[in-house]
Design a protein around this nucleic acid. Sequence first.
DNA 1: CTCTGGTAGATGCAGTTGCATTTATATGGG
DNA 2: CCCATATAAATGCAACTGCATCTACCAGAG
Lengths: 145, 145
Amino acid sequence: MTEPKPETVAAWTSLVTAGRVVLDHIESALKQAGLPRLDWYDALLEIERAGDEGIRPFELKDRLLLPQYGMSRLLERMAKAGLLAREGVAGDRRGQIVRLTQKGRQVRREMWPVYAAAMMRRVEHRLTQEEVVELTRLLRKLSRS
Amino acid sequence: MTEPKPETVAAWTSLVTAGRVVLDHIESALKQAGLPRLDWYDALLEIERAGDEGIRPFELKDRLLLPQYGMSRLLERMAKAGLLAREGVAGDRRGQIVRLTQKGRQVRREMWPVYAAAMMRRVEHRLTQEEVVELTRLLRKLSRS
DNA sequence: CTCTGGTAGATGCAGTTGCATTTATATGGG
DNA sequence: CCCATATAAATGCAACTGCATCTACCAGAG
């Protein structure tokens, strides 16, 4: 059995740690401001991008890397909060189409400055522009299927 | 309000995505093998490192970045599974000392090859040695307090 | 000694997640 | 048309998490 190099273990450890630290930082800024969590933001953004056409939950779950039941329940809670509307889709009676409400767009807009400020404090202010670009390149090599 | 640069957003997005993808990969390998999840491994490793002396839960929670109640319940479950023992500590009757049992050491040893193989597939085989080192350096700049 | 404030750890409750399964519908083969 | 198989989404239940609070103990000030 081949062992991973110590540098590989260090890289994985720092990936997990950095992810956790930055995530905690952003989440606590949002909570501080009385706003929803980041998973709601991600969903709001993705649905908003779909525009008037809307988007199907099964597409959404792939983009957000959520399990099917997780997506189902997230949409359920966000709908209850009035941030989105779900309608049946013509041509497939199993499915539904999700669209943001006005309130959904507004909440996403309110979250953005808080999210952005936290991201800048944790990422932009700590790395040079070249480092940011290089980091992105390396991380993408890890998630490519 | 200053906006983050698009490259910053891309870096943050790829950090979250890479963390999720690699984590999912490792978790599913462990589950496949009928082994406990990664948070148990992390705890097992940290406790094993403490050796005969053992370690206090409040130190452990800092190293593992867990909230106090999360640590408390994780130790409770792992103790119930027979992987660790908790004893009172001389000189502070509020506290306790945690040590691995033989079974705890064994389970950690069984988890390692599965964990290591998944890590190598996802990290070591996708980056050059220089890239791994550079990635670690950049990520550490993000989590430094 | 007693009081006050602090630290270690546990816990009740509500909300969330994971897993397996269910419901409803679609689609292709015979 | 009928069936077997596949897909979209929801759901019951058990486990887990977050939040606030609680219990037990410690340590220093007066």
